[in-house]
Amino acid sequence: MTAAASIIEGRGLAKSYGAITALSSLDLTVGRGERVALVGPSGSGKTTLLYILAGLIPLDHGQLVLRSKPVADLRPGKELSEIVGLVQQQLDLVPQLPVIQNVLAGRLGQWGLLRSLASMFSAHERGEVVEALSRLGIADKIDERTSQLSGGEQQRVAIARLMLQAPRIILADEPVSSLDPARAEEILRLLTEVAADSDRTIIASLHAPELIRKYFSRVIGLREGKFQFDIPVQELTTQRLDALYDLDRRHQS
């Protein structure tokens, strides 16, 4: 990957919470259109890394350059939201709002305050919401309360929000961990399709090897805040995963 094509350049990324080191001096380069899976046991720093890349939590040390601009120089709001967007489990939706407002929240970075307020009462850009939702197969849910939707449907609403935000880098924090295998695959397919649309980069944390092999091109193993491996998906072996998740050691003892 040449430097010109890279969209994320991280040098010595470090973050700790008190005495606990969440990330210890990571170097990370990700190119345009790459599909990166982040694997590792709970507490290995996956979420911290994704939140740092999303600009939601500040770095302790290190330098992060997104689209050849230091993240500190990016204006929060419009500029940052055009570059990165984040999908969490299902928690990133406001359950009390109708689906349409949760989807339109993807535009909050671009809209001014007055426009955002006005849209709360009479929704702007309904057409685009309908378009995004029908691509995800839930156009009929547009005016329902988000809390009434199933887990899989809520995840689609989160993807629709991302489609309206249209960031260059899509970050997904365990987007399918609460879904059954069939729905998990469906959501990942949609997510990677949206990313492939205009050569967007996607970085997602997940655990299922078969989904990683099917939808991603590169795998990074994270453990105790350090990269254990960073390999093309073809080189992902069961032994590597077992070692990362400590499964082999548990067998021996």
Partner: peptide
């Protein structure tokens, strides 16, 4: 949900309303 809105670029005032 607030982090979700922030990652969409919402300012504190918009996070309040949405």
């Amino acid at each position: 949900p607030l982090d979700g809105l922030r990652s969409s670029g919402a300012s504190p005032a918009k996070v309040l309303v949405y």
